[in-house]
Design a binder for these strands. Structure first.
Lengths: 229, 229
DNA sequence: CATCATTGTACGACTCCTGTAAGTTCATGT
DNA sequence: ACATGAACTTACAGGAGTCGTACAATGATG
């Protein structure tokens, strides 16, 4: 999951960035409205956090423009306490949730997770794909009831594939969603991680959990639905 | 599926081309309006992507001329942000959809796929021909419920035949839609691929899935409609 | 400071796709 | 029946894409 943060106060920006990377989200930050607008147009984010009191271009206009241009990722706005009408205006412009400053990091965390879940159409934080179970709130995975230990990136890769199950997901698409903006394009990390995932989840290759579609990408092969214990 | 791209910015042109070939579309590109016009007149494309701000001949005129000459392939126009009236003018000239720059690669992908589907009169991305099922979004094929593993070109060949089902499709027509402009005309690739398809889908020849009409081409013999499981 | 786990890189092995070539079979017209 | 050209089959070579492994870098932990 890749998140854009537009916030001008350096301290707060840094804090949010840390919070997000701590949650293993890939995270791009900027202090400036126009740059933020541009990034949101260029990159396929999974969520944006936008401060409404920005230098350059203000937050409301940014959101409006994104929405006019069919950018559909969820947007969480930050407003100063008491800036009452900002909230309303922001939501009208197309934001999905708001948080007034100052706030507890925990609350931001919770709301972001909720938005991401909601955007992926998940009601509950647990995804079931036949024998495979992903608990997105605890970040835990189990197969046939047996817990499987995955590292952060392994988990993220698996989740992204699972959420886009059925269709082929290209390596570039994976890279773009798992890593922040400046990442080496010709690297074989993805291949390596796919290999590691397969080894942990399906060592014999009997499940055909993740198949490769040569030249197109990888495909996750389980249907969402109740598990068979 | 073969697509024409008319775009003067080299970087963007290259990016689009890569996106398309990555999606296994055959793709011709040009930077110049007159050449684009000519190509669109000469080649039977399945779709064209046209930037409206072009040197030489402008995009709107190109589309107008194509439409005057009964070129019916769908056209997606690219407009600079804010060039409001261009959009309208483009659609009036006969374009089918538009995208404002800058845009997400993902979005271009989605719109192109949608246009191609729409042009083929498909409401859903799944084609059913009796026992044969083509899931065009996942690029998966199944026969009698059994998934069949096809390579990219096999899949493309089959899809093209299926979409032109009932009528004979000549080898030149196939070559033109499956390959980009500079391809060896006297090669027997098509024959080879038809052979491979038959072997995978109908090894005994009992189904008569694809019959050859000597001198004319190949014919796909199933009627669209609900599958018989 | 030593140790461990995680992540990313490098590189060779390997698999599979594609297109060509050559030989064979088939359909059609004479 | 024969000739002719079209279509089919098969085998193979080149090459892109993928995999597996080992190792280096980094950062966390005790």
């Amino acid at each position: 999951m890749r998140i854009l943060v537009i916030e001008d106060e350096p301290a707060l920006r840094e804090q949010i960035a840390q919070l997000l990377t701590g949650q293993r989200y890939a995270c791009d930050t900027t202090a400036e409205g126009n740059e933020g607008l541009f990034l949101g147009q260029e990159v396929d984010y999974d969520l944006a956090v936008v401060d409404l009191g920005l230098p350059g271009l203000d937050g409301i206009s940014i959101i409006r423009q994104w929405r006019d241009q069919q950018r559909r990722f969820p947007v969480l706005i930050l407003t100063a306490r008491g800036a009452w009408q900002d909230k309303v205006e922001g939501l009208e412009a197309g934001a999905d949730d708001y948080l007034t400053k100052p706030f507890h990091p925990e609350e931001l965390k919770a709301r972001i997770n909720a938005l991401v879940r909601r955007a992926n159409g998940q009601a509950s934080p647990v995804l079931e794909y036949g024998p495979l179970r992903l608990d997105t709130s605890a970040r835990q995975v189990s197969l046939h009831g047996e817990p499987v230990e995955l590292t952060s990136y392994e988990y993220n890769t698996l989740t992204y594939l699972a959420l886009n199950g059925g269709k082929a997901v290209s390596k570039t698409e994976l890279t773009e969603h798992l890593y922040a903006q400046d990442f080496d394009r010709d690297s074989n990390v993805i291949e390596v991680f796919i290999g590691r995932l397969r080894k942990k989840l399906d060592p014999n290759g009997t499940l055909q959990l993740i198949t490769t579609q040569r030249g197109l990408g990888y495909r996750f092969n389980l249907q969402p639905g109740q598990g068979t214990p």
